[in-house]
């Protein structure tokens, strides 16, 4: 796998963004193309999973608006991601917090991790 690392180094933008995990609340600023114009949109929500490794690693963000929720999967190395900001560190016991999908309102809160 050593040689794989060489390729990953060439293409990875891992160092550009802060480290975060499932349970954290983040804001992803990503570029979207509308015709010829390009603008930046923000997507804020809880990270419910980190998946894959190396260049194919992705993360899923769940954004809750009232009774509805939207989930978006971003590849870590997508050139469309402009910025990632970690808003809150969450205290969760598992790596994939799918149970959040069945919860709404006050139950869907994640306790903040204090250092």
């Amino acid at each position: 796998m050593d040689l794989m690392k060489v390729v990953e180094k060439e293409y990875s933008n891992e160092s550009k963004f802060p480290e975060f995990n499932a349970g954290d609340t983040i804001t992803v600023s990503y570029k979207i193309k509308e015709g010829t114009k390009e603008r930046i949109q923000e997507f804020r929500g809880a990270v419910i999973q980190r998946r894959g490794e190396g260049l194919t690693r992705t993360f899923t963000v769940r954004k809750q608006v009232g009774a509805f929720a939207t989930e978006r999967i971003f590849p870590d190395n997508s050139p469309f991601i402009e910025k990632i900001k970690v808003e809150k560190r969450g205290k969760v016991r598992r790596a994939r917090i799918y149970y959040l999908r069945g919860l709404t309102g006050k139950k869907a809160r994640i306790q903040e991790r204090r250092f």
Partner: peptide, 22 residues
């Protein structure tokens, strides 16, 4: 053959590719 991964092109397309030690 070393293995497979995927890489983003300049246009932002995610391209599957094979790494070869040649």
């Amino acid at each position: 053959k070393v293995g497979m991964t995927s890489v983003f092109s300049a246009e932002g397309k995610n391209i599957p590719c094979t790494v070869i030690e040649a």
